[in-house]
């Protein structure tokens, strides 16, 4: 084979999509055994893995299923960033909460009354009173489970994204009290009152950074897996609130299409059946996440192994 073509293959082969390859028993042997070795290594012997979790309201519980699939594979997760619901799931995970315990929240979401913050919204009263709402149950949930922690106390480095409502700036939180930062990240603009913190008025980060790939790289991640809630809504919105949520979701999806190119691997659970504000459907979202991630996990492992190959060989 001419030398030029050989060099071309060497430089292009790692870029070819996993789906375009033929898989053999030999591939499986190399993948499984090298993977076992790689996950036994600590940073910096292997590249740091970052997890970027998108927003998506109730759909964001799909991340729980993705986390479970990563857990089964023994996938190392060194850094986590989240936007909106991704910040809640990411915050719980980074605090050291086990994946089965995060599932319990999905299972109990209806009794946690989180949906009431959305169901209780009456547009007419918003117009009459001319006041934005405080999401009581969401705040209670965050404060109860994460409110006593600071970023520094977390088991894994974590950051979350919000937006300054006055300037439109993307604000990344990675130090100080955790609860208020996550509350800001999930704070729906136009309905919920902005969170006032550090002289800023903060709303949901999904408006400016639906998938915080850059944020997790800033924490130190060399290789980033993004979990993105995907799927067009199967039903037309039935009221003003749902229309607003859908607009935010569409805007987020448009941002995501650019941002996901920055990730090294993307898992996109199809959660089109799950309404963004219907927290009674969290289990369905989680299951969709697990099914999609289970399908893609070998591809993710291979992509990370290929990325890590030189360092892995050096570290043996």
């Amino acid at each position: 084979m001419p030398r030029f073509f050989l060099i071309l293959i060497i430089f292009l082969a790692p870029l070819s999509p996993a789906g375009a390859r033929e898989f053999t028993k030999d591939d499986e042997i190399l993948r499984e055994l090298m993977w076992d070795k790689l996950v036994q290594m600590k940073q910096p012997a292997r590249p740091g893995v970052g997890l970027a979790l998108s927003g998506g309201g109730a759909r964001g519980f799909a991340h729980t299923g993705v986390l479970e699939a990563l857990d089964y594979a023994g996938f190392p997760v060194d850094y986590v960033s989240g936007t909106s619901m991704g910040s809640v799931i990411g915050g719980l995970y980074s605090s050291g909460m086990s994946v089965p315990d995060i599932w319990k929240f999905a299972n109990a979401a209806s009794t946690l009354k989180v949906s009431r913050d959305f169901k209780g919204i009456k547009v007419l009263s918003l117009l009459i009173t001319n006041k934005l709402i405080t999401p009581t149950y969401i705040n209670q949930f965050i404060e109860k489970n994460l409110g006593l922690l600071t970023f520094e106390q977390l088991k894994k480095p974590f950051s979350c994204v919000a937006m300054d409502f006055r300037t439109g700036e993307k604000i990344i939180f990675d130090e100080g009290p955790l609860g208020i930062a996550i509350r800001a990240s999930v704070n729906l603009p136009g309905i919920f009152a902005p969170v006032e913190y550090r002289h800023r008025y903060l709303v949901d980060g999904g408006v400016v950074d639906f998938i915080p790939v850059d944020a997790v790289r800033l924490l130190g991640a060399d290789w980033v897996l993004a979990s993105i809630t995907a799927g067009a809504a199967k039903e037309l919105p039935g009221n003003v609130l749902m229309s607003l949520l859908q607009v935010i979701d569409i805007r987020g999806s448009m941002l995501a299409s650019n941002e996901e190119k920055e990730a090294d691997f993307v898992v996109k659970p199809d959660v089109g059946e799950v309404k963004m504000a219907d927290f009674d459907q969290c289990m369905e979202a989680g299951e969709a996440g697990l099914i999609e991630a289970a399908k893609r996990i070998d591809g993710a492992r291979e992509a990370y192994l290929i990325f890590s190959a030189p360092r892995l060989l050096e570290g043996l």
């Binding site: 430089f11 790692p14 390859r21 053999t24 591939d27 190959a309």
Partner: peptide
Amino acid sequence: QSFISAFAAA
């Protein structure tokens, strides 16, 4: 076009 060839290329 296998995983092995991509790994070797890396």
